Simulated assay, not measured.
Amino acid sequence: MIRRFSIFLFLVVPYLAKAQGCSDAGICSMPQSSVTSHEKSIPLSLSVEQTWELGEQDMQYLHSVFGLALKASDKLDISFSIPLRNAYYSQEWYAYISDATLASRYLVSDKIGITLGAKFPIGTVTAQDAAGNHLPMALQGGLGTYDLLFQGEYKMPSWSVALGYQLPFGAIDNTFEPNGKFIDFQNSYHLDRGDDIMLRYNRMWASTNLNWMASVVSVYRIKGDYIYDGERVPESEGISFNLGLQAIKAIQKGNLKARLAVPVYVRKARPDGLTRTVIIALAWEGFL
């Protein structure tokens, strides 16, 4: 296990200082297969996840994500989550409720699962600082659109592969243009985000006290992003490629999880504010 973890760090650490990466527009955090020692018959679970994230311009984020999951039947799970977002930039804190996600996962068979979900624009995208400067998307509470999410997953005992699609509706009601205080951020005036296609591969294995899951996630932004009245954002289409590692420890009536995610390749323009260079997360999941 130590050898595997060392190889993982050797692959990803050289990219931490220069890669742009991404947080999650929604499709990457859809319900997925993992490793757990608890029975799936437990009907209700609560979860709390705390992340630390490093973004563009050395911006730091603290996300507190609260989740609720219900096992409606042997084949159907329903989950809901909502984050509290704190961003620290230039010695100032910006705190908001972020966008909520509702998802339903149906098991067609022991190997095949289908997930449908939606994101709701609860987080603000029109916030200003105390001086009246419009904030860039990286400092807003949410993404400002209703999004439909779809995922199909094929699972085996030690691995799974998933294909997902995210469709946002409408332009974002954000009017940020680079100004004297936020000169290094990308223009997001009435931003219209492109659709995303995701391909994820998970590899699971167990050690003495922990279960592990390594992930390779690629997200392709179709057609790119647009601002104003149809002005295309150059180099905003294309692929982002990310690696992740998660450790899971079973406790009484729940799980503890630790997660590390880093990018290795991304598209150059990201006006949606989701640029990240590293994400570290700790989570608790309790069954009721």
Rank of each mutant, 00 (worst) to 15 (best):
residue 147 D to G: 08
residue 129 D to L: 11
residue 144 G to D: 02
residue 145 T to S: 12
residue 138 A to T: 12
residue 161 V to Q: 01
residue 151 Q to V: 08
residue 154 Y to C: 03
residue 143 L to M: 13
residue 147 D to N: 09
residue 129 D to K: 09
residue 159 W to Q: 01
residue 126 T to W: 11
residue 147 D to S: 12
residue 146 Y to C: 08
residue 135 L to S: 07
residue 153 E to I: 03
residue 137 M to Q: 07
residue 140 Q to N: 14
residue 149 L to G: 03
residue 152 G to N: 10
residue 128 Q to P: 07
residue 162 A to T: 00
residue 155 K to L: 13
residue 153 E to R: 03
residue 139 L to R: 03
residue 147 D to I: 01
residue 154 Y to W: 04
residue 137 M to Y: 05
residue 123 G to I: 06
residue 138 A to H: 09
residue 129 D to T: 11
residue 127 A to N: 12
residue 153 E to C: 06
residue 155 K to R: 15
residue 158 S to T: 11
residue 138 A to F: 08
residue 162 A to G: 05
residue 158 S to H: 10
residue 160 S to I: 00
residue 158 S to C: 10
residue 146 Y to M: 11
residue 141 G to A: 05
residue 144 G to M: 02
residue 137 M to G: 08
residue 142 G to C: 04
residue 138 A to D: 11
residue 129 D to A: 12
residue 138 A to M: 14
residue 150 F to L: 15
residue 155 K to V: 14
residue 123 G to S: 10
residue 133 N to W: 10
residue 140 Q to D: 08
residue 154 Y to Q: 02
residue 144 G to S: 05
residue 158 S to F: 07
residue 125 V to N: 08
residue 133 N to H: 15
residue 136 P to R: 05
residue 134 H to R: 14
residue 133 N to T: 09
residue 141 G to D: 01
residue 140 Q to R: 08
residue 153 E to K: 04
residue 160 S to V: 00
residue 157 P to L: 00
residue 132 G to T: 07
residue 144 G to L: 02
residue 160 S to G: 07
residue 142 G to Y: 01
residue 136 P to S: 12
residue 128 Q to F: 09
residue 125 V to M: 10
residue 144 G to Y: 00
residue 149 L to C: 04
